[in-house]
């Protein structure tokens, strides 16, 4: 399964090249039906796959424990690479069905708070010290990952708590989406137990861990070393296309429903994936390969730094020639945005 999503799509990217075409952003919603449908049907398919496999694997008398976990490694790659990515598309939409599907998908990988973190923290504070998932220059993935696991949960909870406080409500109020997160996650863990006992729970948690690892690898790549200019006293410039890494590789953009057109996603977060636009190198930094190759490189920090650090330095010269001291940006020592 990892071979499928990583190697095969790396090869397909190599063979198929780039897709630099842009759809008309004013395309009516009705024309996007077949594009939207794939994100809508994904949750039931993923749910059945996870729990049917838990049931069959734990009933099997011949399947070894190692084989079972190997299989659920593949399930985690699917529920992370595709499931969380589709939940990301769905959570940005305004209708209730899509938002619910996003919550259900995230609960199936025990990472429900990603919705709060992404919408309330990441989009608002990307490229600043207040966004946990903006990887700092020279920060290796293995340092980034535990930091993000801890900080994004805290920042997501604090963001929801602050929003409730502005409406005069305590964090314990039923309007806090964390209640929904905990309930849905608890239901899925209970279902895993009912179908497969403790081994079922272990397999469920294992695929969730693999999925979260996939997500955070992607988060690591998307903004590595890219920072918004500090204007003084906790004020930062607005988010611009230059603050995201992009890849126009055709095959991986099919798989990832154009997530790699990341600058435009930050410009118009609710723009549906078929309408996301490409930017030229003059406006937005481009990765040398698609995300599948880059995630593999991110797992080897010396290789990652060798590929990316010169690109970050070139990006700094291109967009911020006036900044001479990058140390406060590298160290995350600038004041948090207000």
């Amino acid at each position: 399964m990892p071979l499928m999503t990583w190697w095969l799509f790396s090869l397909l990217d190599l063979a198929m090249g780039l897709d630099l075409e842009n759809a008309d952003p004013a395309t009516p919603e009705a024309d996007l039906f077949w594009y939207r449908l794939v994100t809508l049907v994904w949750f039931p398919l993923q749910l059945v796959t996870i729990f049917a496999l838990i049931h069959f694997v734990t009933q099997s008398e011949t399947l070894s424990t190692a084989e079972a976990f190997g299989l659920f490694f593949g399930v985690g790659v699917i529920s992370g690479t595709i499931g969380i990515n589709y939940s990301h598309e769905l959570m940005h939409q305004s209708n209730r069905l899509e938002r619910w599907l996003a919550d259900l998908l995230l609960a199936s990988v025990l990472y429900s708070h990603f919705r709060s973190e992404h919408l309330l923290v990441h989009h608002r504070y990307v490229g600043t010290t207040r966004d946990p998932v903006t990887a700092r220059y020279n920060e290796g993935f293995f340092r980034f990952f535990p930091r993000v696991l801890r900080d994004s949960l805290i920042s997501a909870f604090q963001a929801e708590k602050a929003m409730l406080a502005r409406r005069g409500k305590a964090w314990t109020d039923p309007a806090n989406p964390f209640w929904r997160y905990w309930l849905l996650q608890g239901l899925f863990v209970t279902l895993a137990f009912a179908l497969g006992g403790w081994l079922g729970v272990a397999l469920f948690i294992f695929q969730a861990a693999i999925a979260v690892w996939q997500l955070e690898l992607t988060n690591y790549i998307e903004h590595y070393g890219l920072t918004r200019k500090h204007l003084g006293e906790g004020k930062y410039e607005h988010v611009q296309p230059r603050h995201s890494w992009n890849a126009a590789h055709k095959a991986s953009n099919w798989l990832l429903i154009n997530l790699q057109r990341h600058s435009d996603h930050h410009y118009k977060p609710d723009r549906r994936f078929p309408l996301l636009q490409n930017y030229t190198e003059d406006a937005a930094p481009q990765l040398p390969f698609g995300y599948p190759v880059m995630t593999m490189a991110a797992m080897i920090p010396p290789l990652w730094r060798r590929i990316m650090n010169p690109r970050v330095k070139a990006w700094r010269k291109q967009f911020y020639p006036e900044i001479s001291d990058w140390q406060p940006y590298n160290k995350g020592a600038l004041p948090a945005p207000r």
């Binding site: 594009y35 794939v38 398919l45 593949g74 699917i78 798989l255």
Partner: peptide, 14 residues
């Protein structure tokens, strides 16, 4: 829209 549906091939594969 069909190329975006290729991810569904992962289910029979698994």
């Amino acid at each position: 829209a069909l190329p975006y549906w290729m991810s569904l091939a992962l289910f029979p594969l698994i």
